[in-house]
Design a protein around this nucleic acid. Structure first.
Lengths: 147, 147
DNA sequence: TGCGCCATGTCAGGAGTCTGACATAAGCTG
DNA sequence: CAGCTTATGTCAGACTCCTGACATGGCGCA
């Protein structure tokens, strides 16, 4: 086996981490004027598109633990950006954006969209869709149960 | 503007984060038997391919701060996996793998390569290269100075 | 019905990483 | 040459997020 197992210059995994890191850094910079962290924005965005989600569902969608999501929700709730139902749906507590939350989300969403469109500049819609599909296929392959 | 600014189901950024998270989780699982964290492995791998790197250079390559890399290096050094030069090259202290470090890196590298190849299963070499190039283009676009 | 099983919310503790700060060494510039 | 800038290593503190644990509410099944 003359071939090296992992070569940084041709490793998709390394490129993936590099891209995710760069994107996160640019998102942080874009969201800083709104006093939002990337995690907080992700939470608002997810909640804006899927109103009524529970904390556990939000946590999975944002890729953090329930425990972390709890403190994120507390912070956003104290800022009046979202409200949690007092009446449990079973054990879960549905969450919704407040008008202030919806307003801030709109501005944050535009800022983030600008970053993403800068990341994808000079690429056709078809190329973008292909990249997205490639990444989704990676996720599916990784999450598939292995023997 | 009827189009939503950020749609999770078609957002490349979200897919990117999802893929990076899934890959990291699988890497953690693969490296756990070797008692290595992903950061520790990344450090060893980079050092194996670029011997003599300083702590600051390693930190940039692994996407952490110098301060974090310092504690990572201390842990690896105490396990006898690497050694830091006592004679500074200027201000920097070159770092090398020990034989034990090289040996462990070999096993870790194979484990990680298995994960990456599972992630990319059913794809041609050309498709993999294209994905890697797409990701690199994202990084370049994000890091390019903006007006 | 009663039991086990899973998901959710929550509390406490700890590991990892980051920001801030300082001293030192090399390079550049006037 | 002196001074400024940059890069590195290091120390200290704070913050974020995670792991572990527990109680509670729904669901399936014997």
């Amino acid at each position: 086996m003359a071939q090296r197992e992992v070569d940084l210059d041709s490793s998709v995994g390394y490129a993936l981490k590099q891209a995710a890191t760069a994107l996160r850094a640019e998102m942080e910079a874009a969201l800083e004027p709104l006093s939002l962290t990337v995690t907080q924005y992700s939470c608002l965005e997810l909640l804006g598109q899927r109103p009524g989600l529970s904390a556990a569902e939000l946590a999975r969608g944002v890729f953090v633990t329930r425990q972390s999501m709890q403190s994120v929700l507390q912070g956003l709730q104290e800022r009046g950006l979202l409200s949690r139902s007092t009446v449990p749906q079973g054990r879960a507590l549905p969450t919704q954006l407040t008008p202030a939350g919806t307003d801030l989300l709109g501005r944050a969403s535009r800022a983030v969209a600008a970053v993403e469109s800068r990341m994808l500049q000079d690429r056709s819609a078809a190329e973008v869709a292909r990249l997205r599909a490639d990444l989704a296929a990676c996720v599916a392959a990784l999450e598939a149960p292995q023997p």
